[in-house]
């Protein structure tokens, strides 16, 4: 059995929240209630595994990552990170894990250039001069930061700051990296470079990663998906299995010479997009036996066609809609 580096056992966490009334006097009327941020969640992560922790806003992802890093204490259950309880042995655990908390909790010092933060990280985590120089050079090139890392952090764009956060963590090569919406504001080439850096580190040092994101492309490097909603775990398994389980349709795209022929193919499936000479349908696998489907290959009015798997974003959208529909029933 693979070495389970992170173990989350029946963890729950709730916190007190309040709502205020309307108007000036409303501020004095606070209605307190308890919100269950995490409800009885269990999962584990093996050494070298990349897990995407996904869910909608307010689903409890950040609360869970804060518990994984020992910042918050679980109300119930227990968490083991590298064999230790993060909330009780936080300092020991912190030596071996790297955390990026999006733009909300920056670790790159605001009033100083990122270079000062990098040197601080080098000292705090005892990175040798040789390793520091090599890693810094490589990361700065990879993320196109050479021109900006000596400027005051407050003068950098959000994306540049996020890339510096990533460099700060990668400099000391942690055993586990937790990224909580770490690609906010980051441009596409740099997002790809960040993903590649994680894959490279997994190959070389068996890095384990937990990635929380709303950017579906970031999930592409994950081996496994843990999906939570309203604090409850709804899915835990490989990304491919999730697609197979929740996307029982194929996408068919057709381009027509004349739009009047579009109607003939509408009965093949559910129209996803229909505009001008273009039709995008969600079709059941059995639809390929339909004579209308076979007609596509002979129809001279069809100038182009494409059959593909649905995108993960579409599957997730349908999945969330399904949850909401079930709730309203």
């Amino acid at each position: 059995m693979a070495d389970r580096i992170i173990k989350v056992n029946n963890v729950s966490k709730s916190f007190r929240t309040y709502e205020t009334g309307n108007g000036f006097l409303g501020g004095f009327r606070k209605k307190y209630s308890m919100k269950n941020a995490i409800e009885n969640i269990s999962f584990s992560v093996s050494k070298g595994e990349i897990v995407a922790l996904i869910g909608r806003n307010g689903s409890g992802k950040s609360t869970l990552t804060k518990m994984l890093s020992g910042i918050l204490h679980p109300d119930k259950g227990n968490i083991k990170m590298l064999g230790k309880a993060p909330c009780k042995e936080r300092i020991d655990v912190a030596k071996h894990i790297g955390i990026i908390f999006g733009s909300t909790h920056p670790q790159v010092f605001w009033d100083l250039p990122p270079e000062d933060t990098f040197k601080y990280i080098k000292e705090i985590y005892n990175v040798s001069e040789k390793d520091y120089n090599e890693r810094l050079e490589s990361l700065l090139n990879m993320l196109d930061l050479k021109k900006v890392y000596k400027r005051q952090t407050r003068q950098l764009s959000l994306g540049e700051r996020m890339k510096c956060e990533f460099v700060a963590v990668m400099l000391y090569m942690p055993k586990v990296i937790i990224m909580d919406e770490a690609t906010v504001g980051v441009d596409l080439p740099s997002r790809i470079a960040m993903g590649n850096a994680i894959l490279e580190m997994r190959k070389k040092f068996n890095l384990t990663a937990v990635i929380t994101t709303h950017v579906v492309e970031d999930i592409s490097i994950a081996d496994r998906l843990v999906l939570i909603d309203y604090g409850k775990k709804l899915y835990d398994g490989p990304v491919k299995k999730f697609k197979d389980k929740f996307a029982n349709y194929t996408v068919l795209e057709l381009e027509f010479e004349d739009r009047k022929h579009i109607a003939e193919y509408m009965k093949l499936g559910k129209a996803l997009v229909k505009n001008n000479n273009y039709l995008k349908l969600a079709i059941k696998p059995s639809a390929i036996k339909n004579p209308e489907f076979i007609k596509i290959f002979k129809d001279r009015n069809i100038t182009n066609y494409r059959v593909s798997d649905p995108m993960l974003s579409s599957i997730l959208e349908d999945f969330y809609k399904g949850i909401d529909t079930a709730k309203t029933r």
Partner: peptide, 13 residues
């Protein structure tokens, strides 16, 4: 402000 998080993730008391 929650900036305690940035300090809590470091291996220091």
């Amino acid at each position: 402000t929650g900036s305690i998080v940035s300090n809590f993730i470091r291996p220091v008391n």
